[in-house]
Design a protein around this nucleic acid. Sequence first.
DNA 1: CTGTTAGCGCTTTCAA
DNA 2: TTGAAAGCGCTAACAG
Lengths: 336, 336
Amino acid sequence: MKTKVTIKDIAKKIQVHHTTVSRALRGDSRISETTKQQVLDCAQKMGYEPNQNALNLRNRTINTIAIIIPNISHEIFARFVSLLTDHASKEGFTVSIFQTKESYELEQEIVQTLIRNRVGGVIASISINTKEGAHFNRLMDYGIPLVFFDRYCKDVNAPKVEVNNYKGAARAVKYLKNKGFSRIAHLTGNTEINVFGERNKGYKDTLAALGLSFHKSLQIKKEFEEQDGAFLLKQLWDEEEKPDALFVDSFILTAGILKECKQMGIHIPQDLGLLTISNERFCDLVEPAQSVLEQPIEDLAETSFRILLSRIKLENSTTKNNSSVFDFSLIERESS
Amino acid sequence: MKTKVTIKDIAKKIQVHHTTVSRALRGDSRISETTKQQVLDCAQKMGYEPNQNALNLRNRTINTIAIIIPNISHEIFARFVSLLTDHASKEGFTVSIFQTKESYELEQEIVQTLIRNRVGGVIASISINTKEGAHFNRLMDYGIPLVFFDRYCKDVNAPKVEVNNYKGAARAVKYLKNKGFSRIAHLTGNTEINVFGERNKGYKDTLAALGLSFHKSLQIKKEFEEQDGAFLLKQLWDEEEKPDALFVDSFILTAGILKECKQMGIHIPQDLGLLTISNERFCDLVEPAQSVLEQPIEDLAETSFRILLSRIKLENSTTKNNSSVFDFSLIERESS
DNA sequence: CTGTTAGCGCTTTCAA
DNA sequence: TTGAAAGCGCTAACAG
């Protein structure tokens, strides 16, 4: 208990100055082999571990990067984090994960914590309730590199790594039309957020382009929950003109919809086609197996990290704002 | 860009000593209201943020706790982390998450990183490949409080928060027998790990107690993957005496099993009953809806944090080793 | 090859 | 009510 060994302890032990110990520990070439060995042995024996806080303070450089996400228990974020951690640890970085729980206030607090900790870099996907990006701008004022992925603040000038949501939605609508559906509704989130807004725009534009007159966009302006799906379905079913297919922005909603359909005796895809944006594993296990638009998470994670790393290394390049856009993959299953 | 304001900058600005600034910032009662206001205003204006590294170094106390888990993309861990973060942030702690990816080596590295960072406390669930707990003992040597949850090292004397795996397995076997199944196989992980070992023991003992002669335990000694489930099922089906029910330790395996069953024309639960230990959402959406043994994650998270917090506060109480054990919930659905 | 000095940003004595 | 001095653990610049 209470083994807190410092370089001074080692120094005292073997009768040299603590700077010598510091040098030996870092393999400075100017230290004699004998003392170097002595120091190393002694450090080993005493169970020395460098104090990272002291190093951070001294060197003003921190090998920790932080990820800010709405909720780790969404498959897409969990997998993104997992992949990103792999990349980061290969480069000697430690990754800390922070959840906003879709709260603007919490997001601001988190960013403040990161500034105080002077983290080396930040990768973020903003909460559904975030509109203003002042907190992220402060982060960059402090010289902390920032990269957005998926969801971002329009008023923050940071690199973005994202999926082409407009194109994806267009593809979804075209696909559903080809499958014989013509009354397609879109269940989405707050369209003031880039991802939902662009999907909805892609949806609307494509309906128009294809000459489909039915259109109905329902927004959920908070964190998605299963019951929202059930609620929306009932609402749609109460109306005079029902949809014959749904383009859904989250599998959580689809889960609620599926359960409600079972209750109401709605058959999928005969009565209602479903196409969901989702990276959930097990989408193919549900009944019926769900068609999905999948994000290329590997690409997103790899690219986000690569861009962040380059920013961290050339600490000052504010100039070019290299962003990346990838495409969804459409996976056809039984639900459409 | 490059706004790094320190208390000295503020001090210079308003012509006082930097210690005065420090005091004012922390609301020291001995500072006059006027200077206090001046300092606060100035700090605000200059965008001052305290340097947490300096604080940590100075105060030797860190408001960060770390969670070590095998893989964040397992629902149970994701939800545990999510809940724990909530509790921690309420108490002013920041949570960092680390994944071992079921690698012993990575786990050791992570623990070393945490020692170097002098984190305030650690909550851990060990990797499948970890047998020795020397690294965790070093952590405690450094005076860093540790609490295990779910999976732990037997040779480390730290509080443990877990589920009664023996009892859960016993309950599973009894339940399956009551449902009319008699040839029950157990698909599990490395039984040298506490959770798998105890489940397997509970399984075997209960078979014996109930007078069931068929018993077959298959272990997967690495991270579970879907294909393992398919593989194990085929293996079981090749044998002369087939099981009529499976007690499965992870939904990932069950996913593989379900797909293989579909291919092979095995009907569930008619040909084969299934009961899985799982906290996956959407277990009720798959076909057929899966019966599960669920862990009380809320209790686990809340208790783990509470114990850790008490350890952090009374930094020295090595004496009483308060652990907790909870029970599984059995949720019956169509698969059994 | 090794020791001295100074300082990263902050707080805590001890004096005034 | 404020200032001066010292130090948390470490490294870098400059001597020797």
